[in-house]
């Protein structure tokens, strides 16, 4: 018998109403539990966040500020 890597889990709280909505949503899908669905969604979001974005540079900031002054949003 080979031992696989032990998966560690923890608990997070979500509103009961949201839990029930998710239960309804996953009916008839491949998700076997609310936890597996929530894990999937959160992984997707985290992966999205990991895509490097071009930063808001000093040059961008100066340009934006100049335009905001012209638009009347900054002094």
């Amino acid at each position: 018998m080979t031992e696989g890597k032990e998966k560690k889990y923890t608990t997070v709280s979500i509103p009961t109403t949201l839990f029930k909505k998710i239960e309804r949503r996953i009916k008839g899908t491949g998700f076997t539990s609310v936890s597996s669905y929530v894990t999937y969604v959160l992984r997707e979001i985290i992966a999205e966040d990991e895509v490097p974005e071009e930063p808001f540079s000093k040059e961008d900031e100066e340009r934006v500020k100049e335009r905001l002054r012209a638009l009347g949003y900054l002094e």
Binding site: E53, F56, S57, E59, D60
Partner: peptide, 13 residues
């Protein structure tokens, strides 16, 4: 075009 990029970056930020 540079203004557009700057505002796009601001939105992301």
């Amino acid at each position: 075009k540079e203004d557009r990029i700057a505002f796009e970056h601001l939105n992301n930020l």
